[in-house]
């Protein structure tokens, strides 16, 4: 039996990324088009995972994490360096 993994917890992530996307579009901060598109694609992936109840891919989670870290770094005036892969 397949157990839904990405259901309840992923909802928090989806809400957070959606709020971040909304803030990026409404605030006067200049965000690059590529970053906004990336946010949109992450939101789409997370929506699918929340609806279906399956876990999103690692790439989606990593991208969401990078975006969140960048946003929090901007809040605390710290430059966030992405880890080497």
């Amino acid at each position: 039996m397949n157990t839904p993994i990405g259901g309840s917890d992923m909802r928090y992530v989806l809400e957070a990324v959606e709020a971040m996307r909304k803030e990026a579009s409404t605030s006067g901060l200049i965000e690059s088009r590529a970053k906004l598109d990336m946010m949109d694609s992450i939101v789409g992936d997370l929506r699918i995972s929340v609806k279906s109840g399956f876990r999103p891919t690692n790439a989606t989670l990593r991208s969401a994490l990078e975006l969140i870290f960048e946003r929090l770094a901007r809040q605390s005036n710290v430059i966030y360096l992405r880890p080497r892969r």
Binding site: D9, M10, E15, A16, A64, I68, R71, Q75
Partner: peptide, 20 residues
Amino acid sequence: TLERQLAHAALVCLRELRSS
């Protein structure tokens, strides 16, 4: 509340990535 939300979401992502 957005910062709190983001911090919680980051922790969820980290946990999920770790588990997989």
